[in-house]
Simulated assay, not measured.
Amino acid sequence: MKRILAILLFAGSLSGETFDHYLKRFDYNERTEMKIKSLEAVELYKMGEVEFVDIRFKEEQAIWSFPFMKMIPLNELPDRLNELDKNKTIVTVCPHYDRAEMARIFLTLKGFKSRYLTDGLIGLAGYLRGDEAKEFIEEMKKR
């Protein structure tokens, strides 16, 4: 945990907002806005309002992935910010949500609007199955 805090403090010191400032302005609204569940995230993706970023390690991504997500491992994120669309909300994802939350804080400190998927990739996979998967793919083909 100390290492995570040190990383976040360092990341904040490189941007316009420090981690200290972020913590001081943190409130119930921010706590609500930092999270998103699969159902809402998928609907916003369909409307073109969010960009999913899978921040797992490359080896994890090679085993299974979602073709509609941008794959940027957490340890590459600082060098690949230019690949993200600042006009969209960035939804960070990993199997559960621990690394996704780290990525979300980093992106927030860098000026991005970002949220993390609370039910993680495992929850998203559970949501996008059967009829939901079929409907999602059909909608994406229309784009």
Results as ranks from 00 to 15, higher is better:
Phe68Lys: 01
Asp54Lys: 11
Leu121Cys: 03
Pro67Met: 03
Asp20Ser: 12
Ser114Asn: 08
Tyr22Phe: 11
Leu124Ser: 10
Lys86Trp: 02
Asp79His: 12
Met102Asn: 08
Asp54Met: 10
Arg3Cys: 05
Leu84Ala: 10
Ile4Val: 12
Arg99Pro: 04
Leu5Cys: 06
Ile36Gly: 01
Glu49Thr: 01
Phe66Glu: 13
Tyr28Glu: 12
Gly130Lys: 13
Thr108Tyr: 10
Pro67Ser: 14
Leu128Ile: 15
Ile36Ala: 04
Trp64Asn: 12
Met140Tyr: 01
Asp20Cys: 04
Pro78Leu: 06
Ile90Asn: 01
Asp79Val: 01
Glu83Pro: 06
Asp119Ala: 05
Leu23Thr: 14
Asp20Gln: 15
Gly123Arg: 05
Arg56Met: 04
Gly48Thr: 09
Leu124Gly: 09
Arg56Leu: 08
Glu33Ala: 10
Lys141Trp: 02
Arg3Phe: 08
Gly126Phe: 10
Ala11Val: 08
Ile63Thr: 15
Leu8Ser: 08
Arg31His: 01
Leu8Thr: 13
His96Gly: 03
Leu84Val: 13
Leu9His: 13
His96Gln: 06
Lys141Gln: 06
Lys142Glu: 07
Lys110Arg: 14
Lys46Leu: 06
Leu81Tyr: 10
Lys37Ile: 11
Val42Asp: 07
Val91Met: 07
Arg3Lys: 15
Ala11Ser: 15
Thr89Pro: 00
Thr108Trp: 03
Gly48Ala: 08
Leu5Arg: 08
Lys46Gly: 02
Leu14Trp: 02
Pro95Thr: 05
Phe112Ala: 08
Asn29Asp: 05
Glu40Gly: 05
Ile122Met: 10
Ala62Leu: 05
Glu101Gln: 09
Ala103Asp: 10
Ile90Thr: 01
Met140Lys: 12
Thr92Arg: 06
Thr108Lys: 12
Asn29Tyr: 04
Ala11Asp: 14
Ala62Glu: 12
Leu107Gly: 12
Met1Phe: 09
Asp27Phe: 07
Ala11Pro: 10
Phe136Glu: 07
Val91Trp: 12
Lys46Asn: 00
Leu117Val: 00
Ile122Glu: 15
Tyr28Ser: 13
Glu76His: 06
Lys113Phe: 07
Glu33Gln: 13
Glu49Lys: 14
Gln61Ser: 09
Lys113Arg: 15
Phe106Ser: 09
Lys88Val: 00
Val93Gln: 01
Glu139Asp: 11
Thr108Gly: 08
Glu40His: 14
Lys58Phe: 03
Arg99Phe: 06
Thr118Pro: 02
Phe136Leu: 05
Gly120Ile: 05
Met47Phe: 03
Glu33His: 11
Phe19His: 13
Val50Arg: 07
Lys58Glu: 12
Met102Ser: 05
Lys2Phe: 02
Met34Val: 11
Lys70Gln: 04
Lys141Leu: 06
Asn75Phe: 09
Ala100Arg: 07
